[in-house]
Simulated scan of single mutants.
Amino acid sequence: MVTVMGKIQSFIPDLFSGFLCFLRGIMFHVLRHGPMPKHIAFIMDGNRRFSRRHNMKLGGGHRVGYHTLISTLQYCYEMGIKYVTVYAFSIDNFKRKPDEVEEMMSLMIEKIEEFLQKGSVISKYNMRINFWGNLKLLKEPVRLAAEKAMAATAANSGPVLSICVAYTLTDEITHAINEACKEKYACREEEEQEEEEDRAISVDDIEKYLYTEGCPDPDILIRTSGETRLSNFLLLQTAHCHLQNPYALWPEFSLWHLIWAVLNYQRVYPYLEKIKKSK
């Protein structure tokens, strides 16, 4: 009798989980009848406030936020969203207390290793990982971990996760202009014979060397915790996307917030398309 009851009790959570998955599939099927975003970007704000609110030790909110990221990735890819980009660490974040920066870097190495393990969301969806930013600013162990993840997933043909680390738009622009100038003026003798306008740096020249080159611009940018600043994040790439600022802190961000974001995008989609075509 005890054995039978034990089996029933262990079966109930699996049954409930299966029902939630079925219900989620129905909701996503309904959503896909409207225009769906190809790319969603997230500024994962509010991890430290979550830690303070719940009296967690240093880095506790970021660890909970990692699980939120994994769930959000799964929901996005189940919806059919091909690209997800997250703002993980700004260049400005290096100004924080050294022990906090060190904790975040250690957590990043730990989670990158988890990404590469068999059975992770990366292997499940055959995902490709990008790390965008000035990786030279990272300490060697972090940089090597990021490079390892990019190399290990480079041939994957599934969805794309781009992680912005040691990133700001101003740094990205500086990098792009420098690279464009190197290419433009590589052969000075030939350049001297060209017209002045041919030697000028164009928008196309800069775009070719952005970290995000080859990736479509975001359709939705979500910054959690109710903040309304973009904090130097993808300012060029988000010129025509839909900005949303839910009040939930990042560790509190849920499936329902994501569904609401997509519904709001679908509501304004005709206007967004009109704006894009007028440019």
Rank of each mutant, 00 (worst) to 15 (best):
T212M: 08
L107S: 02
L249W: 00
K182I: 13
I222C: 03
T238L: 10
L258M: 10
L161V: 03
Y209F: 11
L116N: 00
R24Y: 06
R143Q: 10
M56S: 03
G214V: 12
I222E: 00
L263K: 09
K38I: 09
I12W: 00
T212K: 03
H54D: 05
D219R: 00
S231G: 11
K82Q: 15
I12E: 02
H242L: 15
E110S: 02
C21V: 11
I163T: 01
T85Q: 06
N130P: 07
S225L: 06
E192P: 14
C21Q: 15
A146T: 05
S90L: 13
M36C: 06
K38M: 15
L263D: 07
A149V: 07
F89P: 05
R267E: 12
L135E: 14
V262H: 00
V4M: 10
A154E: 13
K184I: 13
R52E: 07
S17L: 15
V2A: 10
Y247P: 15
H39Q: 12
V165R: 01
E110I: 03
S123D: 08
K97C: 10
G80D: 08
A166C: 13
I70K: 04
M104A: 13
Y75L: 13
F131K: 00
I26G: 00
F28P: 11
S225C: 02
R223V: 09
P37F: 02
H39R: 08
D219W: 02
R229Q: 12
R49L: 14
M108R: 04
V101F: 01
S162Q: 10
D45R: 01
G158D: 09
A152L: 15
M150Q: 03
S123F: 01
N126M: 14
W132R: 06
L69Y: 05
T212F: 04
N55A: 06
I220R: 00
S106M: 13
M79S: 04
Y125W: 04
H175Y: 15
R24V: 12
F42M: 14
A145L: 07
F11D: 14
I177H: 01
M1W: 01
C241E: 02
A200T: 02
L138R: 00
L230S: 08
S202R: 03
A186P: 07
P216V: 08
L116D: 04
I129F: 03
Q193H: 15
R24M: 13
